[in-house]
Design a protein around this nucleic acid. Sequence first.
DNA 1: TTTTAATATTGCAATATTACGATAAAGATA
DNA 2: TATCTTTATCGTAATATTGCAATATTAAAA
Lengths: 110, 110
Amino acid sequence: MGASKTEHFTPKQNEIASIMKALGHPARIAIIDYLLKVDTCICGDIVNELPLAQPTVSQHLKELKNAGLIKGNTEGNAICYCIDEETFFKFQNFLSEVFGKIKAQKNNCC
Amino acid sequence: MGASKTEHFTPKQNEIASIMKALGHPARIAIIDYLLKVDTCICGDIVNELPLAQPTVSQHLKELKNAGLIKGNTEGNAICYCIDEETFFKFQNFLSEVFGKIKAQKNNCC
DNA sequence: TTTTAATATTGCAATATTACGATAAAGATA
DNA sequence: TATCTTTATCGTAATATTGCAATATTAAAA
């Protein structure tokens, strides 16, 4: 097979899984890391920051964009990418719930 | 190709990416959800909770275990799975940093 | 208008993931 | 011991992901 049976899970489970999946590659974590480090949009120089060919970087950027984690603005013939805060904060809310439940666990087993 | 060039990224980037990847499937999110809902170890009934065959569930459990997100204890002929808090809290620390940086951004672009 | 620069898309090869039937393994129970 | 229950592993088919060379696209600059 190879295709996930997404129709059998809740929309929220699918949504969170797709965000996690988008972040499930070191190159894409590195892109987010870099965006946070420079604390501004990046126009052009991501390719030089990563040990990957330009088409590969472009593909990773596309996946982050599809997942809503970054957004891109055309700026002349360059494109300016930055963090899409909204999705990150939605993600954070989900995780707060999860971590809260973990902390509240009675832990009476294992 | 199909293989990630993990050797070109930092250990931390690879570690976080592998946790994210493990959570990048709705079935595995559903398993974590269920573990948090029942607030105890689960011995046996995960298979009945998921819309997937037993070998498939077993495989997903293995991936969560490999990523350190759950741990399993043999309990007679059953196996008792529960959240591995340590990994989750490590994950939370990483994310706190990320979310902190996002909030602190000057947001002077895009 | 031609050239240059930046980014995206296409096409493809290598590898990984997902799913499940069949079967094995390990311990409980009759 | 024989059987049942529970979980893991094997084998395999279908599909997805990763990476890059070649090429296309788009807009600025000459």
